[in-house]
Design a protein around this nucleic acid. Structure first.
Length: 279
DNA sequence: AGGTCGACCTGGCAGC
DNA sequence: TGCTGCCAGGTCGACC
């Protein structure tokens, strides 16, 4: 569930706490969380190292060390990175003991998430393939027009493709398309100029608003303080099957695309809607 | 080559 | 009550 806004919320908080602290000890409760490193090697490589910053790329957190190398954290579905007092839960898989007496816990109910230490970032496959960040100049109307024309898959499926654009998952893909008044079923190469414009604006608007409200907590997402995000109260269509559309009161529909639930308003997001309303 | 789908996991919940 | 089986969704790799 953590998508760009949730990971960015965690990043902003950890950026205030972690830099300057060093790791005094590490406890690996479940080694399946380690992606490419053997447990002993992982511990040896990062013990006594000092956090330098907290960076985000798409849904991945990148934590460089002053002494060199990087801790990569991908929360996938149920991962949590909790900073604070010692609080070990059943879901706690890795514990970092810090030089100020506090702890950084990696929790993960479903064990989908992955941590790894890498000496450098250049060869990291995920970072090599990932598309542009939605808040950078690389993501602009011209680029979007060209890229959309290359693809024929439904726009909802494309929005979730990390090769295409970084950070959008199932929740925000539905919310962005609702905001842009575009049918999730519309093929990427069939979007009109005004729809591309609406999509560009909606992507930035929805993601920024979600960060402002500290993300969306459906089930498992928590920020680095263990708190839920409040954007759930501003969600318009996701997980709202059979509920009235907040704009037109028409029933919100759920369909499955590429094996994932999509939620949309059939009236506001008609395929042939000529005019998209943007604010 | 482009697109789709199952595997990886666990817990919550509906249905019987 | 308690069991079974489905569902949640990010990413990778297998398959069509």
């Amino acid at each position: 569930m953590p998508e760009l806004p949730e990971v960015e919320t965690i990043r902003l908080d950890l950026q205030k706490s972690l830099p300057g602290l060093h790791i005094t000890d590490i406890k690996i409760v479940d080694q399946r969380i380690l992606k490419t490193n053997a447990p002993l090697s992982f511990i040896k490589q990062i013990k006594h190292k000092t956090f330098d910053a907290v960076i985000r790329r798409g849904k991945m957190l990148i934590i460089p060390f002053k002494e060199g190398g990087f801790l990569l954290v991908h929360l996938k579905m149920t991962g949590q990175l909790i900073y604070g007092e010692k609080l070990t839960l059943k879901e706690t898989k890795i514990v970092f003991c810090l030089s100020n007496g506090k702890y950084l816990n990696y929790n993960d109910q479903r064990l989908f998430g992955r941590l790894s230490f890498v000496p450098q970032l250049q060869e990291e496959p995920f970072l090599k393939m990932i598309g542009p960040e939605p808040f950078t100049d690389d993501f602009n109307h011209g680029w979007l027009s060209v890229q959309l024309k290359k693809r024929r898959i439904p726009i909802k499926t494309l929005l979730m493709d990390q090769h295409f654009i970084a950070g959008i998952g199932n929740i925000y893909a539905s919310e962005i398309l609702f905001d842009a008044k575009i049918s999730p079923k519309k093929k990427s190469d069939r979007l009109s100029r005004s729809e591309i414009n609406a999509l560009h604006q909606a992507t930035i608007r929805v993601l920024k608003e979600a960060i402002r409200f500290r993300g969306t907590s459906m089930r498992n997402y928590r920020d680095s303080n263990g708190e839920k995000g409040s954007f759930i109260n501003r969600i318009k269509v996701y997980n709202k099957e059979n509920k009235p559309c907040p704009v037109c009161s028409f029933e919100i529909k759920r369909i499955v695309q590429a094996g994932r639930s999509t939620f949309y308003c059939q009236r506001c997001q008609q395929i042939h809607a000529k005019t998209a309303k943007y604010i």
